[in-house]
Design a binder for these strands. Structure first.
Ligand code: FES
Ligand code: FES
Lengths: 145, 145
DNA sequence: TTTAATTAAGACAAAAAGGTCTGATTTAGA
DNA sequence: TCTAAATCAGACCTTTTTGTCTTAATTAAA
């Protein structure tokens, strides 16, 4: 499971925001870029897309930046990934056929479907709250790559 | 799980060869290219790599082409994929950290490790024989994309 | 020995992904 | 009202991936 750089940058950025003290409002993108070592202008574009998708909100000007647009419990990991990699990222055929179709399966279909359902279940259950809590309580890695 | 075009072309090509009648020796790349609708010269390069890796053998000249270098039961799907996507394709961190490390886990580590072990187990069990048999006996799709 | 069929090699091009830069716009606060 | 700090917009560049083209080398068979 190799996500694109865009996707990894996006996930790490929202995790960074999600683990900030609640009294903070907008977080400057420059801060996220520096802390996570993500190219600033590239990150700006990625976050603009996330804002357009409704995951985060942004504010220009002094004291501006980004903040989460919903409670962390409602920011689902699978949804964020799919908004970047494409809606059918987790539903496609593992051998690359046009559509994963039980009525016209490929040679790995049965075995793959079982696994990809687990992946979707797992990522569908995880949201920014569960991840942020784990990061904070267990001191999990987020800053270094 | 999105494999690169290189990888998908490679898998489909060896599956095509593996499902040919046993009396056929070398299969021309042009035939594979046409049947599977894969760009000929691109496929040539991909198959050259597979030949260098020892999965297939090639012969130039008239009556030339490629054939499998080992019995189908010894041509493992995971190995083929890893030879193209990289040895650590299935072992990396889902959040893109430098190394998936239980001693320094990311926020999805525990959940992801369980799934990726299943993926590795599944692909490690599948080989050209199991896939070819399924394709032939059940008439599974291989030609169209 | 010639010819046709084939892979090998490598230059090149096109498309996609990743990244940089400059300037415009917006905002809070001095 | 001015200024500094920030996002937004879009042109541009670089790298990787994907694909094309031409030519050389090899092989079987006429
Ligand atoms: S058809 Fe290939 S995975 Fe379902
Ligand atoms: S450290 Fe991220 S999956 Fe293991």
């Amino acid at each position: 499971m190799i996500f694109s750089k865009r996707c990894l940058h996006a996930l790490r950025a929202v995790l960074y925001v999600g683990t900030q003290p609640p009294e903070r409002d907008y977080i400057p993108i420059r801060e996220i870029s520096t802390k996570l070592d993500i190219p600033f202008h590239f990150l700006t574009k990625i976050l603009k897309d996330l804002a357009d998708q409704g995951f985060i909100e942004s504010s220009r000007g002094a004291a501006g930046g980004i903040r989460l647009a919903k409670p962390t419990a409602e920011l689902n990991v699978k949804e964020i990934i799919e908004s970047i990699e494409g809606e059918d990222y987790f539903s496609g055929c593992i051998l690359g056929f046009s559509k994963c179709d039980a009525a016209n399966p490929c040679a790995l279909h049965d075995r793959w479907v079982a696994i990809k359902e687990e992946i979707q279940k797992m990522l569908g259950e995880e949201h920014l709250e569960s991840l942020s809590t784990r990061i904070q309580e267990q001191g999990l890695r987020l800053l270094e790559m």
